[in-house]
Amino acid sequence: MWDLIDKLATIIGLIAAAIAAWNALKLRKETEQRWQKENEQIYVILRSPSQKIRLPVEIKRRDFTRSELLGYIGMLPLIEGKTRFNLNFTSTAEFSQQLEIIRQAGVEFIISCDESELDQFNYAKQPVAA
């Protein structure tokens, strides 16, 4: 009788250990996938109809917040006499919506500007491909 109980307890223990190992492997895989996604780089581009500026840094997805983004844009050199940049798009609800969409998926955040907004930056601008 005790032999039967001993064998049954051993089998139950082995099954429980196998389930625990399976769950640990599954959790590890999910954690690695989340870590990889959080470390993906997001590129930020200020774009007008005729030219664009790509920020010289990439922001990791986990750090891609409104304040970080505006801080990186603020690091771009401005033309003399300007102390703060002004981009109308950053004050819209669409900006916040696009920010959240990019945080979930996407690798490129494009901020639409007009020519005068882009001209306030003293930075190498590239022509926009047609």
Score class of each variant (00 low, 15 high):
4 L>N: 04
7 K>P: 00
8 L>H: 07
11 I>N: 06
12 I>N: 12
14 L>P: 08
19 I>M: 10
20 A>C: 05
23 N>C: 03
25 L>W: 09
29 K>C: 05
30 E>I: 04
31 T>K: 11
33 Q>M: 06
33 Q>L: 06
35 W>V: 02
36 Q>D: 10
36 Q>G: 03
40 E>L: 11
41 Q>F: 10
43 Y>Q: 13
49 P>H: 02
50 S>F: 09
53 I>M: 00
53 I>L: 00
53 I>G: 05
54 R>D: 01
54 R>K: 13
55 L>E: 01
58 E>S: 15
60 K>R: 13
62 R>T: 02
66 R>G: 07
67 S>E: 14
68 E>S: 09
72 Y>T: 07
72 Y>A: 10
75 M>L: 15
76 L>N: 03
78 L>V: 11
79 I>V: 12
81 G>P: 04
83 T>Y: 09
84 R>Y: 09
87 L>G: 01
87 L>V: 06
89 F>H: 06
90 T>V: 15
93 A>K: 13
94 E>K: 13
95 F>Y: 15
95 F>C: 02
96 S>Y: 06
97 Q>E: 10
101 I>K: 14
102 I>Q: 09
104 Q>Y: 13
105 A>G: 11
105 A>S: 15
106 G>P: 04
107 V>M: 13
108 E>T: 13
108 E>P: 01
112 S>L: 04
